[in-house]
Design a protein around this nucleic acid. Structure first.
Lengths: 223, 223
DNA sequence: CCTCAAAGTGAAAATCATTTCACCTGTTCT
DNA sequence: AGAACAGGTGAAATGATTTTCACTTTGAGG
């Protein structure tokens, strides 16, 4: 386990991360200082040394912009059992991290390597930091082209923010299913696109169901 | 249209591109020189000025590693008309460039931004440099979960290298379709997974058909 | 033959970036 | 109270990088 960062150190780390995402290259020490209000390059320098010691970045001595983010795991722990979770991030090298528990034997992204998703697959206004990937647990949306085992990119949000008719990812007992969402008569309706699967109409407070968020995109390796 | 590059200039450009892919940041002038056997930093410098003038890169004066590839086109020109082509690449921020002609109005990756695909979606032994993306032109593989408009990642190869039963991307007149491939009796069979679409059996030298390669993965934005 | 453009060489100037040195200010912990 | 640590300030030293200057080489064309 990596050493914990202090508040300030985390600010620095986040700046580095964001800068790299935006600019496609690491910042100089001065740039870091300017953004975080540290007037002395040395102040930043020492901060970087600490980040390196704690394992968050690696540095190349005497090199301009000579730092690199350590490809990390540990973006925020896990929740639903048996669910493959991915944490998506954005940037030049827009990447997403798999935080997973169960790797299962999905032919999907193996290893702990970051998972990439093209931002173009997702609407502009979506913050990829709010997104995660799930694996569809059944063929309920087969009729809409989403099959069991498909990797679905979900923007986490409250069910109130899912519009009627949109596709949602729902935690159904302990499986993640994809369904068409609708709010009617104070009930949440989850409609499958496949006759074989029953539609569900539940009360918002039903503990057996949990709307993870909007389904934005899907991907699948072809056999 | 962008100015054409000389042999040498192209070598420099390719080096820059490869370096950025691998290292996630642009090289210094000296690094470029070392790799291309140019002893004088000035030699490289002038080369970069030319690349900038011709529109292949942008530079920031007096900045270490202050250059950026112009998010480009020009990876190798285009072929099939009306086909959205993507060139996939790998690297730190594994990215892929869209080389396309027709942007069409696909809700797929917009803009000229690179397209990303997670390497985990594709077998290990595949060289992402040999891959490109195409948009399925019909619903012939609907039964197999690939629908019209889906972005399909294809590894370019000769039809001889597509194994029987594998999914292939085929240039059919001037549209790209996805089909199950089979070689039998000296003929190439393209089978749709949807009854509505007729199977095709052609001679290998049929000019109307062209096997682009193996289909490896697909992705789709969800409405 | 002369000229021009592409591609270099070498070295010196001018910046930019990282590192080091000396010291300061709170806070936390013993 | 005193030590230890996080987080800074400023300035100076040392490298790294980019730019500029003055010249050379080679090949294609007028």
């Amino acid at each position: 386990m990596r050493d914990r960062l202090t508040e300030r150190q985390n600010q620095v780390y986040e700046f580095l991360r964001d800068y790299v995402r935006r600019q496609g290259k690491p910042p100089t020490i001065k740039e870091v200082g300017q953004s975080l209000g540290i007037r002395s390059t040395n102040g930043v320098h020492k901060m970087l040394v600490v980040l390196e010691k704690k394992g968050y970045i690696t540095r190349t001595p005497n090199e301009a912009r000579g730092l690199e983010l350590v490809d990390d795991v540990g973006f925020g722990a896990e929740e639903a059992p048996g669910v493959l979770m991915l944490k998506l991030t954005e940037g030049v090298g827009r990447r997403a991290r798999r935080m997973t528990s169960e790797t299962a034997d999905h032919p999907l992204p193996r290893s702990r390597r970051p998972l990439l998703i093209d931002p173009g697959l997702v609407p502009d206004d979506v913050d990829l930091d709010d997104c995660l990937g799930v694996v569809a647990a059944d063929d309920g949306m087969n009729g809409a082209g989403v099959r069991k085992g498909d990797l679905v990119v979900v923007e986490e949000c409250h069910w109130r923010d899912v519009s009627n008719g949109a596709t949602a990812a729902v935690l159904f007992f302990d499986r993640v299913v994809i369904r068409r969402f609708e709010l009617a008569n104070g009930r949440l309706h989850f409609r499958a696109a496949d006759r074989t699967y029953a539609d569900e109409a539940i009360r918002p407070d039903d503990p057996e169901f949990f709307v993870i968020g909007r389904a934005l995109a899907m991907m699948r390796p072809l056999t």
